[in-house]
């Protein structure tokens, strides 16, 4: 059974200009021990999805189902949800400095997180805090437990956040841009640490990032989001080597390549979540847009080979990949001569 199962999740926020549809019809499954990478650009809804799972979307209208470990989180009361959050679902965000309290030592904050969920004495909790700091690779953990967040570097703070996130051995770790604020060598250390903790604890990891390289490095499966919808999902090899959705193709073509090689950016920018275009939300920017794309929004359907690869696009299901053959199929579909 899947650990996490979102079904037709929709999140909207009321605004003076009308409802902002941050998420529409998002479904996903995540099994224990697996890593799902969620990629997308600003406003695609990836963080909204994470916050919805955690029940942290204040003022939002949420519908659908968030199945976690056999229960529907959306039907839980705030108290029950608080028990799940923190103990069974750990979380790490981009900016550890704003997630940690500046007035308290990190040891105290980790101990407090433990004592909020378990009946342990102050001393035992402190000892566990120090053990956790050691686990995440902080040198001299007993001494460092008495330091304040500002006394740590960015990378070390993110380690502290991870110590807190895994303190209660959660079944799921949600990591929202966990390495975006970090330097490259530190990013590599933190990704390595997340993978090690995952192995040791058997956690599922939901990794949200805008960085395709990070996803490729750690994720088993990839979900690409655009304008509040899942437009493609597949295992990470398929997603990056045999993508179907033109948006995924466009992202890959935007990646800086060798020097002198001209990049092929996606023209324009994502639509306003207040005024979604008719039909497919990507259609105004799409190279392969056809008549039906502006008329009807394509559902997320299985494309070639196995049920694991799905794409929300009207192009033929065999048009996967970045090679000439796939390009010919796409060109034929839209009635254009292949170049």
């Amino acid at each position: 059974m899947s650990l996490l199962e979102l079904a037709d999740l929709a999140v909207s926020f009321p605004s003076p200009d009308g409802a902002v549809h941050a998420l529409r019809g998002v479904s996903l499954t995540l099994d224990p021990g697996r890593t799902l990478g969620v990629v997308g650009e600003s406003g695609s809804g990836k963080s909204t999805a994470a916050l919805a799972i955690l029940g942290l979307n204040r003022g939002a209208r949420v519908s659908g189902r968030i199945g976690f470990d056999g229960q529907d989180l959306l039907s839980l009361g705030e108290d029950r949800l608080r028990e799940v959050r923190g103990s069974q679902i750990g979380m790490v965000f981009q900016d550890p400095l704003s997630s940690l309290h500046p007035y308290y030592t990190v040891g105290r904050q980790i101990a407090e997180a433990i004592r909020a969920h378990e009946d342990v004495g102050a001393k035992a909790a402190r000892r566990r805090a120090a053990d956790l700091l050691r686990l995440v690779g902080i040198p001299e953990p007993e001494r460092r437990a008495d330091d304040y967040p500002h006394e740590f570097s960015g990378g070390m703070r993110q380690r502290v956040m991870l110590a807190m996130a895994v303190a209660l051995r959660p079944k799921l770790l949600i990591a929202d841009e966990p390495t975006t604020a970090l330097d490259a060598t530190v990013q590599a250390q933190i990704l390595e640490l997340i993978m090690r903790l995952q192995r040791e604890y058997g956690m599922a990891v939901l990794l949200i990032t805008h960085d395709l390289g990070v996803v490729a490095a750690v994720a088993d499966e990839v979900m690409v989001m655009y304008a509040g919808r899942v437009v493609e999902s597949a295992d990470s090899h398929t997603a990056f080597h045999r993508p179907h959705h033109p948006y995924t193709l466009g992202l890959l073509a935007s990646l800086p390549g060798p020097r002198g090689q001209r990049l092929r950016p996606i023209p324009g920018q994502p639509p306003s979540l207040l005024r979604m275009p008719d039909g497919c939300p990507f259609q105004p920017r799409c190279d392969y847009a056809m008549h039906q794309c502006a008329a009807t929004e394509p559902p997320l359907l299985t494309v070639t080979g196995g049920p694991a690869h799905r794409s929300a696009c009207w192009l033929p299901s065999g048009a996967v990949g970045r090679d000439d053959g796939a390009e010919r199929i796409r060109a034929r579909a839209i009635g254009r001569k292949a170049s």
Partner: peptide, 26 residues
């Protein structure tokens, strides 16, 4: 060399996940 190896790259060929030179400390 460590900096180059730390940068995530889009090579997801099975088994091709690169060995990183993980630097010690900060």
């Amino acid at each position: 060399a460590a900096l180059m190896s730390a940068a995530p790259v889009l090579d997801v060929t099975p088994g091709a996940r690169r060995e990183r030179i993980l630097l010690k400390g900060e």
